[in-house]
Every structure is written in C-alpha cells, then in structure tokens.
Nucleic acid binder design. Sequence first.
DNA 1: GCGACAG
DNA 2: ATCTTGTCGC
Length: 247
Amino acid sequence: MSESPSPVTAPVWTGDVKAARALQVSLAKQVMLRDAYPKRLATVAGLDVGFEDSGATTRAAAVLLDAKSLQPLAMNIARMPTTMPYIPGLLSFRELPTLLEALNGLPTSPDLVLLDGHGIAHPRRLGIAAHFGVVTGLPAVGVAKKKLVGDFAALHDMRGAFTPLRVPIPGRDPGEQIGWALRSKPGCLPLFVSPGHKVSMASCAELVMSFVTHYRLPEPTRLADRLASRRGDIDIDYSRTLPLADG
DNA sequence: GCGACAG
DNA sequence: ATCTTGTCGC
C-alpha cells in the first residue's frame, strides 16, 4: 500500500485553542530539519501579511525572486476576511489561509520560501514557517523581527554575526537550540531565524544572510512586507518571467 | 501571582 | 499588525 498524499490544507480556526495547540504538536512531528532544497537555488519566495479595513481584511503578499540576482520575477496579492484575533502561538491559524492563496497565485513554485515569523522557534515547535512547510511540502525558513520564546547571549554588532537561540531543558546546561539571533545589519536589532521545513539548523542563518543586501530584512521578506503593508511597490523584471499561454 | 507574548 | 510625531545618523 502507498501512503495517502498529505493534502495541502490550510488550518481551520474553530475557536478551540486547546484543539489548535494539539494539532500543532501533531504537525510539529512532521517537520523535516534537513537541507532538502536544490543545491543551486533558482528561485526564492518571500511571504508576508498585512491588514486592510481596520483589520477586517487579511492581505497576503507573495514575491518570487531570482535566487542569485535577488531581482523580483513575479508577485501576487491575496485577500480574505479576517476570521480570528491575533493569539501568541497561534499565528498560523490566522494568517496561513491567506498566505497559501497568495502562494498559489505565483506563476511557478519557488525552491525555497522565507516567511515573516518563526519556524520551530515556537512553544510547540510549529511557528508559521514550520506550519507552512509541513502543509505545502516546500522548504521554508522563519525570519522574525522579535523573539517569541528562548534566550540568547550578547551578539557582536557585525554584519552576519549570529548566536544560538535556546530554550531551557530541565537537567542539561546548554538547552535545546531552536534557532539563531542574527545580526543582519550593524546597529540594528537582530532577526530571529529558525528552520521551517526541509532546512537545517546549521545552514538557515547563513542561508538567510545570502538574501540580505543592505537592509535589516532579507530581500524576499522585505519586498513582501512592502506589498502586504502597501508601503510601496516593487519593480518586476518581466523580461525574465516565463511567457504564459498567449503572452 | 508575575512576566512574556511572532504578527 | 496598525497608528503616528519626533529624533538620530550617514
């Protein structure tokens, strides 16, 4: 017998916090912490969410970039009615449905996805990037601007410096590492990077740094953030977009 | 009880 | 996240 392919299903908010947390514990077991993405990345996507109508509408932005030049190749915006409030630890139930719709609107599937929020650096090891990865099967990394859980030592104020983000474990001294505090830009607060799916702890920090130019945020997430928050537009390099049916 | 708390 | 003035530094 062959395994039934896991359906790409967005999480459904039923109002039951206990049930949502139980589902997270279950899905967290499906997270793959190994580098399972193309050695030579062709494309990388950035995903982020913003709100309209005072929060009544959830707006998700997806940007596809050339992994080498970091030039935008395509973008897509999706909107859905907001169905639940923000609850720390349950962010994916609020934003994932719209993010998946934005992703599906891209012309091609990316080799890697960067999301605004945490990967496994989460109370139950299933932040939005991990949840996204398990649900789509795509390699994903979480890039958060603030920590949700864990502690980290002082970090050098040098571009690219990173130190482990750990969570205590009764008994052992160096607790469990759940991610990294990354100084993507000197003089700026660090970013919190953690594996989402099919990406290893050992490589995720440097992987994210490979997408950072001179801003605090890596290009995929920075551009998606601008579109999601309508803080400006981005220039798509249509000359490199694969032609569709009739042009 | 008190502090923490992605977006 | 969103709102929104003032301020620091290259």
